[in-house]
């Protein structure tokens, strides 16, 4: 039996058949986690953001019309979830000066995690040094399997513009990668 398409599943979810949501969760929890982890390098935070993305999909299920692609819609929501998180974090950082110790601790954990998880993988290190917008477009290209028109839907630009963004990001990645190679 042919598996139900993402859009067909999401249309069922829209009709309150929430059981179908678990199938979408199984399909996309890993790519979404990879996307968030690639952007934030924090395991717990990335899991939180995956959870929030699916909760937001549930909350706004009535807004899915099935005309566009589910995956593009989902990554669009995922980007918003990530941006909202960082915006809140920035506000909190300026308001809450008392938790500076906690924040320093958090950065230490982050760098430890990087060392452990990435195992000095040069490409990952180069990716981490890319500006966020460029890293994001490369991650979207990876997790949306190079479907540039889909990525265009997520980023709100044309397919051609996405290709140029990927080209520029790869160019910069190449430069960073070569610098890392030299220093090792």
């Amino acid at each position: 039996m042919e598996a139900l398409s993402d859009n067909a599943l999401m249309m069922k979810v829209k009709e309150d058949d929430l059981g179908k949501m678990s199938l979408l969760f199984d399909r996309y929890k890993r790519p979404l986690y990879g996307f968030f982890y690639g952007l934030n390098k924090e395991q717990e935070l990335s899991e939180d953001l995956v959870q929030n993305t699916f909760l937001r999909i549930l909350k706004y299920r009535h807004l899915f019309h099935g005309e566009g692609d589910f995956r593009a819609w989902m990554f669009h929501i995922a980007r918003n979830v990530n941006n909202d998180h960082h915006r809140k974090k920035r506000v909190k950082a300026t308001e809450d000066l008392d938790n500076w110790q906690e924040r320093i601790g958090h950065h230490e954990n982050q760098s430890n995690e990087m060392q452990h998880n990435e195992e000095h993988n040069m490409l990952s290190m180069a990716m981490d040094r890319l500006p966020e917008d460029k890293r994001e477009v490369l991650l979207l290209s990876k997790f949306e399997e190079k479907k540039y028109s889909e990525i265009g839907e997520v980023l709100g630009c044309t397919e051609g513009a996405v290709k140029v963004k990927v080209f520029r990001a790869l160019q910069e990645l190449k430069v960073i990668y070569k610098q890392l190679e030299k220093s090792h």
Partner: peptide
């Protein structure tokens, strides 16, 4: 370089995420 990115290993989330999602 792009091919290498595509092949880069993707980490899996912990089972904790499954628990939280199914509870929600």
């Amino acid at each position: 370089l792009d091919e290498q990115i595509q092949k880069m290993e993707v980490l899996s989330p912990s089972l904790n995420l499954d628990d939280r999602f199914y509870a929600a």
